[in-house]
């Protein structure tokens, strides 16, 4: 292959774009692994796998989407391989589950209706928020505030797009347990985003 040909097929490898993509990949991996070392390894492996392959891309966003698909597969493999170690002992049987429940119960009054302070307000223009890096920093922070076992199930479901049945099997929990955990994740994440982003914005 001629040198010119190789260059035409090369993805945008310049340092600035790689380091920006690497930063976003790390954020994605850390949300799911909560182990900085493992997240770094996973991102490094994904970058290396991508660099070995001589694919061409129409543009930077296609390239980035492809990189994220590689990273996602690496994380799924990692979770499947290590599910026997983490599994149910972390999730069920621990008092964490109930501790998490009480925390979100305070959102509701007796009788199960919203506390006036916690009642969901109107969010103005979430799509515009998605365009701001500051929003994703808040999102990251809110994910980190979730109890670890809750965040793990949520990211498996929403970021890795695993089916609930597979998550249950991997973690050795019942479907109902899984639903309850996902519900708590959504309650907690929503509350945090409203308090730390959307509320300040609309007032």
């Amino acid at each position: 292959m001629s040198k010119a040909g190789a260059q035409a097929a090369a993805p945008p490898w310049d340092d600035a774009s790689i380091s920006a993509i690497r930063r976003d990949m790390l954020r994605f991996a850390r949300m799911q692994l909560r182990d900085s070392g493992a997240a770094e390894d996973m991102v490094q492996e994904a970058l290396m796998a991508a660099m070995r392959s001589a694919k061409s891309f129409a543009g930077r966003s296609a390239f980035k989407t492809w990189m994220f698909a590689i990273l996602r597969n690496k994380i799924v493999d990692h979770i499947r391989a290590s599910s026997r170690e983490i599994c149910s002992s972390d999730l069920v049987g621990s008092s964490d589950l109930d501790a998490g429940l009480e925390e979100f119960d305070v959102l509701f009054k007796q009788g199960g209706h919203w506390n006036p302070d916690d009642r969901p307000a109107t969010w103005s223009d979430p799509e515009a928020a998605f365009e701001q890096d500051a929003f994703w920093q808040v999102f990251d922070l809110c994910m980190n505030k979730l109890p670890e076992h809750i965040a793990r199930v949520y990211t498996m479901r929403e970021l890795l797009e695993l089916e609930t049945a597979e998550i249950c099997a991997e973690l050795g929990i019942t479907p109902n347990n899984c639903f309850v955990i996902l519900h708590r994740a959504r309650l907690g994440l929503r509350e945090c985003l409203e308090n730390r982003w959307f509320q300040g914005e609309s007032r």
Partner: peptide, 27 residues
């Protein structure tokens, strides 16, 4: 409150999709 809650869950879904596809903002 609950009708807003339903809309917000859709926003969480969209945000997750953005993260998955590596197209969060700021660039």
């Amino acid at each position: 409150g609950c009708s807003n809650y339903g809309l917000h869950l859709d926003v969480l879904r969209l945000a997750a999709r953005r993260l998955r596809e590596g197209c969060e903002g700021g660039e």
